[in-house]
Simulated assay, not measured.
Amino acid sequence: MILYGLKSCDTCRAARKALENIDFIDVRDDGVPSEVLDAALAQFGKALLNTRSTTWRGLDEAERARPEKALLQDHPTLMKRPLIVDGDRMYLGWAKDVQAALAG
Rank of each mutant, 00 (worst) to 15 (best):
L71W: 04
P67G: 01
W56T: 06
L72E: 02
W56R: 06
T51G: 10
A65S: 12
K69V: 01
L78V: 07
E68A: 15
T54Y: 10
P67N: 02
P67S: 03
T51R: 15
T55L: 10
R52H: 15
L59D: 03
R64T: 01
E61M: 00
D74T: 14
E68P: 11
R66Q: 12
L72A: 00
R57E: 13
L71K: 02
Q73S: 12
P67F: 00
K80T: 11
K69S: 13
T77K: 08
A70G: 10
R66M: 07
A62P: 09
R66I: 02
D60G: 13
A62C: 11
L59C: 12
R64L: 06
E61D: 10
K80N: 15
R52E: 09
G58D: 00
L59N: 14
A65P: 09
D74Q: 15
L59A: 13
R66V: 01
Q73N: 08
T77G: 04
N50G: 03
H75R: 08
T51L: 08
T51P: 06
R64Q: 12
S53F: 06
P76L: 01
Q73V: 12
K69A: 14
L71P: 01
G58A: 11
K80V: 00
T55E: 07
R64H: 11
D74L: 13
R57S: 10
R52P: 09
H75E: 00
H75T: 09
L71H: 05
A65F: 10
E68G: 14
L71R: 02
R52N: 14
M79W: 05
L72Y: 04
R57A: 14
H75W: 11
R66P: 03
L71F: 06
D60A: 02
L72V: 02
E61L: 10
T77P: 06
R66W: 01
P76W: 02
D60R: 05
K69G: 03
E63N: 13
E63S: 14
K69T: 01
A62I: 00
A70P: 12
R64K: 15
P76M: 07
T51W: 06
N50W: 05
S53H: 08
L59G: 12
D74V: 05
D74F: 04
P76C: 04
R64N: 06
G58E: 10
W56M: 12
R57T: 05
L59Y: 13
G58P: 07
L78G: 00
L59H: 09
T55I: 07
L59I: 11
L72D: 01
S53A: 07
D74E: 13
S53W: 04
E68N: 15
A70R: 07
L78E: 04
E63W: 09
N50R: 05
P67Y: 01
L59M: 15
A62N: 13
T51V: 05
T54M: 12
K80Y: 11
G58T: 06
E63V: 13
T77V: 09
S53V: 07
Q73E: 14
T54K: 15
T55Y: 05
D74R: 12
E63G: 15
E61S: 11
E61T: 01
P67D: 01
S53I: 02
T77N: 13
P67E: 04
P76H: 04
R52G: 15
L72Q: 03
L59T: 07
L78M: 08
W56G: 00
D60Y: 10
T51M: 14
A65H: 10
W56Y: 14
S53K: 09
E68K: 00
H75D: 08
E68V: 11
A65C: 10
H75V: 03
L78S: 02
